[in-house]
């Protein structure tokens, strides 16, 4: 049975505006699906639906099965057992995704303490190991720092360490690098790629930049105004985009690429 199965997912506001319409896809451990679409297409809402964390006032219909559990309509207790272990997420803005008043080490320690019951020395060692696994130099100092005291790239590494601390079966990465500059972005993507490869977790990678998403994912799902308009293996979608929206995305990526190549001597 597939680890995550989303079928006919529809998200509506209380005023009956449809934000996501009839989206279906499946994702297994070790698999990498790219969810791509313009700003406002509904990517984050899909991610939040899977986590059972839709904001108040939004309703999800359809069916989401995660590790044999129906997520939609499940009680908070059941959902909470899934979060962190079955699925977890890294979000876009690294500064907003970390508690400004909590030292980075304490934030990474939170899931380790509550999920794996680590305490004292073992907990501290696990925090340092988690920070080391995301290639942060001087993890001891990093653990004592506050979010505003480190760079955006370092913060996003901490967020990844926090998300992967309990070795989740599935990671949702919602534009994890869009607030970083290109060099740092490449580093963080490489890191994510290695870590996911090592743990064998499934990855739902969300983005609006085709070049980035196609570099990480194996399959693509193109979203337009809340609807899935195209899906398939990355190579297929790139070579023969069927939907105008996809053609637009591919065209943009090509033009950028072409401009870069013309500029290089």
């Amino acid at each position: 049975m597939t680890y995550l199965e989303v079928s006919g997912l529809t998200v509506r506001t209380a005023g009956d505006r449809t934000l996501v319409r009839d989206v279906s896809f499946a994702l297994d451990r070790g698999d990498r699906l790219g969810l791509i679409g313009a700003s406002g297409a509904g990517k984050t809402l899909i991610a939040l639906s899977i986590l059972g964390l839709l904001p108040r006032g939004l309703r999800a219909e359809g069916r989401i099965r995660l590790d044999g559990t129906d997520v939609l309509g499940a009680p908070e207790r059941r959902l909470n057992r899934l979060r962190g272990r079955a699925v977890t997420a890294v979000f876009q803005e690294s500064l907003a995704a970390l508690d400004p008043l909590m030292r980075l080490g304490a934030q990474v320690a939170q899931p380790l303490r509550h999920r794996q019951g680590l305490r004292g020395k073992a907990l501290r060692a696990a925090v340092v190991a988690a920070l080391e696994s995301v290639r942060l130099a001087d993890p001891e100092r990093m653990a004592r720092a506050y979010p505003h005291e480190v760079s955006g790239g370092q913060r996003q590494r901490v967020a990844i360490a926090m998300a992967l601390a309990c070795e989740p079966a599935l990671l949702i990465a919602d534009e994890p690098t869009s607030s970083l500059d290109t060099t740092v972005q490449a580093e963080v993507l490489g890191l994510l790629d290695r870590l996911i490869g090592r743990t064998g977790a499934g990855l739902l990678f969300i983005g609006h930049d085709l070049a980035v998403v196609a570099g990480v994912a194996r399959r693509l799902l193109v979203l337009d105004a809340g609807q899935a308009v195209e899906s398939g293996p990355v190579a297929g979608v790139l070579s023969a985009p069927a939907h105008p929206r996809t053609q637009e995305l591919v065209g943009t990526a090509r033009r950028l690429r072409g401009a870069l190549e013309r500029m290089s001597p």
Partner: peptide, 19 residues
């Protein structure tokens, strides 16, 4: 966002409140 992120990693409501 850090509340969403913390909940996504499985922190329970009481711990969200105190932490």
């Amino acid at each position: 966002d850090y509340i969403t992120a913390s909940r996504a990693s499985g922190t329970s409501w009481p711990r969200i409140v105190t932490g």
